[in-house]
Design a protein around this nucleic acid. Sequence first.
DNA 1: TTGTAGGCGTTATCAA
DNA 2: TTGATAACGCCTACAA
Lengths: 340, 340
Amino acid sequence: MNKDKEVTIYDLAEKLNISVATVSRALKDDPVVSKKTRKKIYDLAEEMGYRSNHFARNLRNQRTDTIGVIVPRLNSYFMSTIIAGIEQVANSQGYNLIISQSSESAEKEVRSARTMFNNRVDGLLVSLAYDSDNLDHFSSFFKKDIPLLFFDRVAEHENVTSVCIDNRRAAFEATRHLVERGCKRIVHITARSNRNVYTDRLQGYRQALQEHGLPFDESMVMYNNLSQEAGYTAAAEILAMPVLPDGVFVANDNCAASCMIGLKKKGIAIPADIAFVGFNNDPVSTVVEPNLTTINYPGYEMGEVAARHLINHLNGAALITATNTILLRSELIIRESSLR
Amino acid sequence: MNKDKEVTIYDLAEKLNISVATVSRALKDDPVVSKKTRKKIYDLAEEMGYRSNHFARNLRNQRTDTIGVIVPRLNSYFMSTIIAGIEQVANSQGYNLIISQSSESAEKEVRSARTMFNNRVDGLLVSLAYDSDNLDHFSSFFKKDIPLLFFDRVAEHENVTSVCIDNRRAAFEATRHLVERGCKRIVHITARSNRNVYTDRLQGYRQALQEHGLPFDESMVMYNNLSQEAGYTAAAEILAMPVLPDGVFVANDNCAASCMIGLKKKGIAIPADIAFVGFNNDPVSTVVEPNLTTINYPGYEMGEVAARHLINHLNGAALITATNTILLRSELIIRESSLR
DNA sequence: TTGTAGGCGTTATCAA
DNA sequence: TTGATAACGCCTACAA
């Protein structure tokens, strides 16, 4: 057993006194190779510890069996659930994953895209950063017909399929639920961003108000980064309002939970004084008291669907450009935070 | 601009009437190439949309600039924080990440290891699965001197550096804290696993009891998978105990939080009746009421340290085999759940 | 400072 | 059914 040298098909061929071509064919289960030869080759390969060289193969084949993934942040329960779904599908189909995070910066997203491109990924899955406004950094992918797919944080582009939920509708239902529970002054806490997930939710919120004859008041929309800390700040801001709201719809559970806690500390009763609805169905939503009414966001499923769709395209089983948008089902989960 | 053909250094060389060798050198900023030529080459490369071919390069260089990462699960806040740290360092050093999850199954871990090996990762970062008991599946890495590093869920091996916290000591401090708060009957909830993180915590728990003259009672140790659901079940089990405990130390915040909630629903006052300490400092710990006393686990930092250490070794800046274990600092964060 | 040429390990084409 | 051989794109002695 040679310790410092890789075994190649040449070694196998030489030892068996056959050609590398035959070895190569046998290793790919080409039926044209006789059963006997094939077995001999497999056995020897096993014995000598042969492993195929991906680079040599990729160099020839012009494909990498690798899928690139770019996400805004890795460290959230929500995003990691999506990635788990992606990994599950990709791995079962023999694809590797290269993952990189844009840290919510358009600039870093550009760099990540370039890296992915240079690494010759077969396809790319992207959830866009807060502030990345144009898609020029993906043009190299379009030019080379490398399939691209957006998930969660998406954008319109003729060559790209988007996988997401109907954020407008989900927000509409969340807000309507509050209205039906008797709320008349509903605050919406969201992120200042042009990303679909936020603009759509804002739209759904507005629409629900409108359809129920409630006025839309720009001062009732609060913008922050939706972090836990931001939730506490938001609580303080709410308390400082001339007239307190009676409902709050937050675009993210973590922020909603800490906001609730901040208010409770100041003696506000939830849901009696102010009802709450969050978004995502994060683990915190069943820990905070009262448990948080929220939108169930199918993260794992979204990852699976995105990966499967891309891979189908890669295998020629489906044409990605034919699909514009895949909407996953989301639903309102009603818990105590809104039951008043 | 050719649309369907890759630009190679040959194309550049031909167009400029120089040799590929010069082009290759210029592209790597070899100082031996004259400034003028180098500029010409860079400009043309830019203009023609040249991108280096990683496979060809890897095929020559026998390295991939890729680090493999195997983790038990991707979808936890805790693990994704570590990965974010790894990504940050790896990316800044020009390394790519291939990530795969073992889903807590030794069998899948074996497969993942093989995939990583075949992908010729330059190094491997691993957090072991619950039940993977031997390290045979990494022997191919050892044979080829591919550096391997364990983090969080580690195991002893002469060729592997481990990055973790002092779980025994952290658990000791957590338990001691409960004792100092007057707890005499302390339950420990953990996972049934031989992984260091659990055995060490159990040991720390035992030691703290012992040093404070409290008896260790095997029936006070409850084993489950530390999930949120398991926390509710644990609450029921605690309520069914002949004598209620007055303190609970849980090896994971998520499980601790839901256990607290389960108990509270049945009228148990926390911390007055039963004090709680968790582990990890997960976001839920500041959402659950009362806020959970816990061990702050430096996940992001752990990811950074693990990645940096591996890369230093790869760059020849440090010898990985010389280091046995890197212990990160963890600390007890005292919140209301234990203040009685 | 630049050029020549061989080789990294595979696969596909053509011929036998 | 098998074999010989030319790419795939890059890097690096060695030579000039």
